[in-house]
Simulated scan of single mutants.
Amino acid sequence: MSDWRIYRGAGVPHEGVRGLPEPPPWRDFTGAGTGPDSPNGAEGDDADDTEGADTARRLGARRRLVESLHPRPEEVEAVNAALYLRRPLLVTGNPGTGKSTLAHAVAHELGLGRVLRWPIVSRTSLADGLYHYDAIGRLQDVQLDRAVAGESDSAPARPPIGSYLRLGPLGTALLPAQEGPDGVPLPRVLLVDELDKSDIDLPSDLLNVLEDGEFTIPELERIADREPVTEVLTADGDKVPIEGGRVRCTAFPFIVLTSNGERDFPAALLRRCIQLDLKPPGDKQLAAMVSAHLGEEALEEGAELVQRFLRREPGQVIATDQLLNALFLTQRASGVERVTRDRLAEMLLRPLDRPR
């Protein structure tokens, strides 16, 4: 039996890492295989190129099976309510229940392009989501231009302010929408991930922006009389014109706010959202998820691990990506003995709420 280990703990340098197998589909960051002719995309679907590798990782290498994920009726109804009412969707649930994946599934099915993602941490402010102005960088460039002009006796060129402005994920989502082939403006999809990790003020700070669908950039407002239109960078890396320093959406984006339930949100925010509590996946959802990522064969070979996941104790928190990790490693690492497979499965399926 061959040795599956890459790192052996012997302290002797070797080149075994060159034989490292391909990564799991959900951890492939090369961006390869996301086109319409690859197994990562639906056949003939030109929109796959715009969705990007992130959607491929989240929805599965076989995205043509996404329609088999069997969302519950209440999940479909909540998404449609948010779309109809132009309201954010606040999705709560245990880790690994598919809260973030929901945004990618909606974007994929409706052909809304790449999902804009705004990950939230304790230091995140509203400004981080709207835009960033590199005032220090601009000042340094002005000083450098003056120094060069002093040596050449020519007047320094003033760097355009738009080169130092970049819209954040929320700011990009609120741009005037691009129109589809039929002239209908299409919304962007924005994932605001783990809002419950934020500072206590951020949920309240979001209220006006989510209600009005617009915001201003003071740095551009001040110069609007002499520079009414300024080109700035977006979170996509494109340049767009901003008129009068104001960004106003024409199609309210589909916004998914996720929360692991670690804190309560103010009633003013809850009133402006459609709320959805995601339950752990059932038999059909889990089978479709495993098939979409690893194929039908993995589902059959890993039936014991799948049943172990489904039979977990009530209230025990085990994320679905833990199951996918266990299935992938115990089946794909050649030369793994049975006892080692059992140890790996035990390690990878450790409940998240188990005391250390």
Rank of each mutant, 00 (worst) to 15 (best):
R117Y: 11
H132N: 06
A47Q: 13
L324S: 06
D199K: 00
L139V: 03
E300C: 01
S154P: 01
H108E: 07
Q316L: 10
E74P: 11
Q140G: 01
W4T: 00
P355I: 02
A177S: 15
E227S: 06
L348P: 01
A147N: 08
K99A: 05
N80P: 00
G111Y: 10
V290L: 06
R343V: 04
S122N: 02
L286P: 06
R158V: 12
A147M: 09
L20W: 13
V247Y: 10
R138M: 14
G41T: 08
E296G: 00
D3S: 11
L186N: 02
Q140Y: 02
V306R: 15
D28K: 12
R341S: 00
N325F: 05
A177Y: 09
E296A: 06
G19A: 04
R87N: 00
I161L: 10
P253H: 04
D193S: 13
L352A: 05
I120N: 12
E346N: 13
A235H: 13
A345Y: 05
K197D: 03
P281F: 04
G41L: 07
S122C: 01
L210H: 08
P160K: 06
D196R: 08
R248E: 14
D48G: 02
D212Q: 07
V339N: 07
R272F: 03
A251P: 03
E211H: 12
L112I: 07
V106E: 02
R5G: 01
L20C: 12
L278K: 01
F328T: 07
D48K: 13
E77K: 04
E296H: 05
P24F: 03
I120V: 15
D199C: 01
S2G: 00
G111C: 09
I6A: 05
R57D: 10
A333S: 05
D153S: 10
A157F: 11
D321P: 07
I6M: 04
P88I: 04
D37V: 10
E75N: 02
N40E: 14
P95T: 08
A333G: 01
G129W: 08
L327I: 09
Y131V: 11
E300A: 06
G96M: 11
E346D: 15
L165W: 13
A105E: 04
A288G: 14
L170Q: 07
A319L: 06
L126S: 12
T250R: 06
I223S: 00
P23A: 02
D28R: 09
T34F: 06
R123T: 15
L210M: 13
R5D: 00
G31Y: 09
T250E: 07
R62W: 13
S38H: 04
G213K: 06
V148L: 15
R166I: 04
